[in-house]
Computed example of a mutant assay.
Amino acid sequence: MYSRTTAVEIQFGDCDPAGIVYYPNYFRFFDNATAGLLSAVFAMHKRNWLEHYGILGIPMVDTGARFIRPSSFGDVVEIRSEIAELGRSSFGVKHSLLRDGELAIEAHEKRVWVVKGEDGGIRSAPLPDEVRRLLGQDA
C-alpha cells in the first residue's frame, strides 16, 4: 500500500508547560500527514482533490495512539504514514512517528469517504476505483 514520510520540526507552541509536545498536537500532525499522503498520491492539493472527486471530506471515525517517547521544542521528527487497509467506503492509515530514528509514537486512523446526502447532511460513498487503485499501489 502507498506510504509517505513527512518531517516536522516541533515548535514552541506545540509544547505544554513541561516542555514536551502536548498530545493533541500529535493528532494535528497526523491529520496533516494524511492530507499530505493523499495529496502526493493524487498529485494535487487537498482542495483540488476534494473538488476533483466530488467529496465533502474524509472525516475520521476512529483513531488512537501509543506514546512511547516524548518530543520537545526544536526536535525534528519523521512521520511515516501508510495506507493500512481499504474498505468499501473507508480506509485506514498507520502513522509511525520517529525521533532520532527511534519509534516514539504508533498511531492509527480510520477515515470515511463522504459526499453530500440527499438530506443535506453527509453520507459515506464507495471509494472510486481510481482512488482504490492509487491507494493500493506500492510506493
Score class of each variant (00 low, 15 high):
residue 37 L to Y: 04
residue 1 M to H: 12
residue 128 P to V: 01
residue 30 F to H: 02
residue 114 V to L: 12
residue 58 I to P: 07
residue 40 A to S: 09
residue 43 A to W: 02
residue 64 G to W: 01
residue 87 G to T: 05
residue 112 V to Y: 11
residue 133 R to C: 08
residue 84 A to L: 04
residue 91 F to D: 04
residue 85 E to Y: 01
residue 76 V to M: 10
residue 57 G to Y: 10
residue 60 M to K: 09
residue 138 D to H: 03
residue 95 H to V: 04
residue 114 V to W: 01
residue 46 K to E: 15
residue 11 Q to N: 03
residue 2 Y to D: 11
residue 11 Q to T: 01
residue 57 G to K: 05
residue 6 T to Q: 03
residue 110 K to N: 14
residue 73 F to A: 00
residue 13 G to R: 13
residue 85 E to N: 10
residue 85 E to F: 09
residue 63 T to E: 07
residue 1 M to G: 00
residue 16 D to F: 01
residue 2 Y to A: 11
residue 121 G to N: 13
residue 62 D to R: 06
residue 52 H to M: 01
residue 125 A to K: 11
residue 86 L to N: 04
residue 73 F to Q: 00
residue 133 R to F: 08
residue 31 D to G: 01
residue 124 S to G: 10
residue 70 P to Y: 01
residue 121 G to R: 06
residue 51 E to Q: 00
residue 78 E to H: 02
residue 8 V to H: 03
residue 31 D to Y: 06
residue 64 G to P: 07
residue 110 K to P: 01
residue 100 D to Q: 14
residue 93 V to K: 02
residue 99 R to Y: 05
residue 17 P to D: 08
residue 4 R to V: 10
residue 8 V to T: 08
residue 94 K to D: 15
residue 28 R to H: 05
residue 113 W to A: 15
residue 33 A to T: 09
residue 113 W to S: 13
residue 78 E to N: 02
residue 89 S to E: 12
residue 24 P to I: 02
residue 136 G to R: 02
residue 110 K to Q: 13
residue 88 R to P: 06
residue 132 R to Y: 11
residue 61 V to M: 08
residue 25 N to T: 12
residue 30 F to D: 12
residue 7 A to P: 04
residue 66 R to Y: 00
residue 71 S to N: 05
residue 68 I to P: 03
residue 131 V to W: 12
residue 109 E to G: 11
residue 2 Y to T: 06
residue 126 P to D: 14
residue 137 Q to E: 12
residue 10 I to Q: 06
residue 14 D to K: 09
residue 35 A to P: 00
residue 2 Y to C: 07
residue 94 K to C: 12
residue 134 L to W: 15
residue 121 G to D: 00
residue 54 G to V: 14
residue 28 R to G: 02
residue 10 I to E: 13
residue 37 L to H: 02
residue 88 R to Y: 12
residue 9 E to Y: 06
residue 6 T to F: 13
residue 76 V to T: 14
residue 88 R to A: 13
residue 50 L to N: 01
residue 61 V to H: 04
residue 76 V to L: 09
residue 48 N to H: 09
residue 83 I to W: 01
residue 42 F to V: 02
residue 129 D to Q: 11
residue 127 L to S: 05
residue 70 P to W: 14
residue 97 L to H: 08
residue 30 F to A: 04
residue 90 S to M: 12
residue 6 T to L: 13
residue 39 S to K: 02
residue 81 S to D: 05
residue 121 G to C: 11
residue 63 T to A: 15
residue 119 D to L: 15
residue 129 D to T: 10
residue 15 C to M: 15
residue 125 A to Y: 00
residue 125 A to N: 09
residue 68 I to K: 07
residue 120 G to C: 08
residue 46 K to Q: 15
residue 109 E to F: 00
residue 101 G to Q: 08
residue 96 S to T: 09
residue 96 S to A: 07
residue 81 S to E: 10
residue 25 N to C: 02
residue 75 D to P: 02
residue 37 L to Q: 03
residue 65 A to N: 09
residue 104 A to V: 08
residue 29 F to R: 07
residue 68 I to C: 03
residue 136 G to N: 06
residue 43 A to E: 08
residue 43 A to S: 03
residue 42 F to I: 00
residue 18 A to V: 08
